[in-house]
Design a binder for these strands. Structure first.
Length: 203
DNA sequence: TAGCGTGATGCGTTACATCA
DNA sequence: GTGATGTAACGCATCACGCT
């Protein structure tokens, strides 16, 4: 028997409706469950329902704590210890399991809900960050365009524009001397230049 | 009196044993 | 080996009672 796996599947399918709809057997789908008949005579003929004593409940709880399932021997032993019918012990365990499972489901649901909400908030933050970055990118593109336009305007007026001068090797004329290459500072690659963060977007 | 907690019941399902 | 049948145990939905 593989009840544990089935229990897990059922638990998960209840926690995540839809996840196992294609895997789990669709039991009880066609047949609507028959409603339990009311037994009006129960109070007259049947034994009256009685609440278990505190000691009885304590012992049952202790046993449930160590093992949720109840083997036949253990049930009989426990029943005689408690002065109860074995059937009552079985019913108590059955109800206890069902209610424990519901509690677990509720806890799991709360945990999942909290974590889902956290993720949604995180997603919103990331989305707003993306928007901000896009705006920065747009501004940077405009700046590039502005600089490029200005450079074009200057170069049409003079063949040796400031931009082309910057790109050309330095004109040293008669003072040109070998070994003075280091006299001109060239920033190393990936060096941080304040206000030029946008340039990294193109690298 | 409503609402809640909990013992009990009815029914469907499953696993297992027995038998023809 | 196999299908039919019986039985025990379980889960689930629900009832019913006692208590606050």
């Amino acid at each position: 028997m593989n009840h544990k796996v089935e229990d897990h599947m059922a638990l998960i399918s209840q926690l995540y409706p839809g996840v196992f709809t294609q895997m789990a057997p669709q039991q009880g789908e066609s047949k609507p469950r028959r409603r339990r008949k009311k037994n009006k005579d129960a109070g007259l003929s049947g034994a009256k329902k009685r609440k278990l004593s505190e000691e009885q409940v304590n012992l049952l709880e202790m046993n449930f704590g160590s093992e949720h399932k109840l083997e036949s021997d253990r049930k009989d032993k426990l029943a005689s210890e408690l002065g109860l019918d074995p059937r009552q012990v079985a019913v108590w365990f059955q109800n206890r399991r069902a209610r424990w499972k519901n509690k677990k489901l509720e806890e799991e649901y709360t945990k999942l809900k909290t974590s889902h909400e956290t993720i949604v908030v995180e997603k919103c933050q990331l989305e707003s960050e993306v928007l901000k970055l896009k705006e920065q990118l747009c501004e940077a593109e405009k700046e590039i365009q502005r600089l490029s336009d200005r450079a074009d305007g200057v170069s049409t007026n003079s063949p040796s524009s400031s931009l082309s001068m910057a790109m050309d090797p330095p004109f040293l004329g008669e003072f040109a001397m070998e070994g003075y290459e280091d006299a001109f500072y060239m920033p190393p690659e990936n060096n941080y230049v304040p206000g030029m963060e946008w340039i990294n977007l193109y690298m």
